[in-house]
Write a protein that binds this DNA or RNA. Sequence first.
DNA 1: GTCTATATACCGATAGAC
DNA 2: GTCTATCGGTATATAGAC
Lengths: 217, 217
Amino acid sequence: MGIRRARAAETRGALMDAARRLFAERGYLNTKITDITAAAGRSTGSFYEHFADKDELLREMAREMEAQGDSVIDTENSAEHDLSDRQQLRDHVAGGWTVMRDHLGVVVAHLQSAIAAPPESRQMWRALVNQTTEFRDHLEYLRVRGHPLPGDPTVVAAAIGAMLSLFGYAALTAGEPVASDDEIVDTLTDLLLHGLAGPPIAHGSESGNKSGDEPEE
Amino acid sequence: MGIRRARAAETRGALMDAARRLFAERGYLNTKITDITAAAGRSTGSFYEHFADKDELLREMAREMEAQGDSVIDTENSAEHDLSDRQQLRDHVAGGWTVMRDHLGVVVAHLQSAIAAPPESRQMWRALVNQTTEFRDHLEYLRVRGHPLPGDPTVVAAAIGAMLSLFGYAALTAGEPVASDDEIVDTLTDLLLHGLAGPPIAHGSESGNKSGDEPEE
DNA sequence: GTCTATATACCGATAGAC
DNA sequence: GTCTATCGGTATATAGAC
């Protein structure tokens, strides 16, 4: 491999690394292309040798993320998942949470990009549905087996995706941690599994929750 | 009342009406001040006689909305609400849904504005917490009475707020209705009340009704 | 491929006539 | 208060030297 190509790949990588960091800090919309090149120690013009625009850069970052084996919600295709089983549901929630943590820049950028689009483009609904196809399949699997669902699987999946996306965005950019990762995953899992009514009373397990953390205003 | 003042109020109203429509269609971020003035049939400079900038216009729209008696989530201060009661929970969900429908422009603008801000500003988390203070209070009321919650009331309320905000945004801008309003409200209510596990086999409230509803096999 | 310099476009905001 | 005209700042994208 020639030196030129190595240098090129290096620049490309430097740009993407810088973008990841800046997107997580300042966000996608507020990060200018000159910010990225400056942070990467390259010139403005160099950017366009590798990407057509900021949007293509984001798509490349998403491609790379998924190539690493992570996806936005979950990747398991087994489809034989029982989301009414706490452990399996928790695995899904935890998986999504981890992805958001580890790829905060990409996730932030995606959400900002989708919501900055004109509402009439319907982009947000499409994004939500696309993000949750696996989840919807699992719900349909449940329904086929006679399990009662709160509503149409697509709608339920989208609602859950909306919760995870926006809550994740808010909590992971909140500065001080809202709670520990485990607490959050447990909370979201229990909320999604049994709702506010709580689990059927077998032995009235106390809601052993106590996070002395009070996020103010 | 002088003609000048009437004309001024008229302009102000025309600008706000145009903004409401444009925000709902094109969104807050994509609507330029000149778009608003053009749609209102006024000149660019006229805008600044009534509002310092687009942000102040939005705040005024929000003020007007709340002055009409609606708020983003709910306005009942009774605080003696039992969110584990389906009817009361449904009323809250339906209330929030109706507000989003009737003030789509303001709601769209608020969400876009909050999520377009730099993540480091922590604005989204603050917005979520502020939007759901009432809800959180109701949850704390539940907890005090010994009802088990999925987690910290602030976190649970924020998660629910995130779901309603983003799902509402997506569904109400999806073009063709995702489902009827009643279906959506019912679905969200049931999801939030009993989760994916579903209600204990014979739908009782939280009473000692024997549960044991777990999908077989 | 990378750089510097710049064209282009756009939008927010203001000045000043009426 | 409303208008027309314009300034000033800023970001994208390109041109052309190296």
